[in-house]
Amino acid sequence: MASQELLIAPHRFAVGYFRQTFWNWLIGTAFFLGGVGGGLFLVSLLTRHVAGMIAGFLIVVVGKNTAHLLFLGRPERFLAAARRPDRSWIARGIWAMGVFMVTGFVTILLQAHSALIHLSEPAADANFTLAAASALFIACYDGFLMRSSAGVAFWRTLLLPLLLFMYASLGGITLSLTLRELHGEIPPAGLKSLEHGLIVANFFLLAIYLYRMSRSLPAARETMRELVRGSYARAFWGLVLLMGLVATLLFSLLHSTLHVSVFVGLIAGCELLGDFSMMMLMLKSGLFGQQIAPTNNRATAF
């Protein structure tokens, strides 16, 4: 049997692709919460929904930041990560988080308890713009961060930040709709249709992503094979596609027709599960390239 068939290297002294194990479930959780929380805050901000803004703000500020701090090897030094925004997406993320924490909090105060704080109209407008921009940045900068991580070929595409932004938007809209349903509020016109459109768009974007990767570097092609037919295929087909997109769309359409409240929980559960699974699979399935000499390729052609 040709040794080229041993694709995943069993240890560091062997030839093969290496699995990405450096960024684990904590980073995956942080990226997921950043996407969902940022998306929820942004959607709620644009539709003036205070409960959604508060929930999004807390998901990002408490959830995402806690996961990041738990992941860091030296969390007490985390502020040092803000030093190089000119080169690092992590540094840019820290700055955006700082802006979001201030402007997001002020925005919530202005919306919920306007008596507590007074801002002139231009200042309030500037605060609104900064809060929206920083929420948008937080929702999708993780994609740029992953894309700039040159070692993992499967992440090296501009489609990744776009995919994470689309998932963040979908997660934000789904959670916003869920919160409104729970409060017995009527969602703004078009939000439900936008959710359906995003589910379909995400499906096609995932397909385009995989197609693009099937024509990329060898490590990216192998990652794609792992996702579609390999050790992550069950999770990819079952959780990301079936639960995350197909079931979410199905339950959402059923809810639009039947108006049964149990579907609200099912829609949110399926969407969040699919979103989180997609994020984790992106991290876990990533492979580093095979380090082989050209002579090896010749040798295997005996």
């Binding site: 560091r12 290496f18 990405q20 450096f22 960024w23 860091l72 961060l145 700039s148 040159a150």
Partner: peptide, 16 residues
């Protein structure tokens, strides 16, 4: 002394 252990360098290095 400056490293925060974010492991961005680990995923950036193609050679591991």
């Amino acid at each position: 002394k400056l490293c925060i252990g974010c492991r961005a360098c680990n995923v950036a290095c193609p050679y591991m």
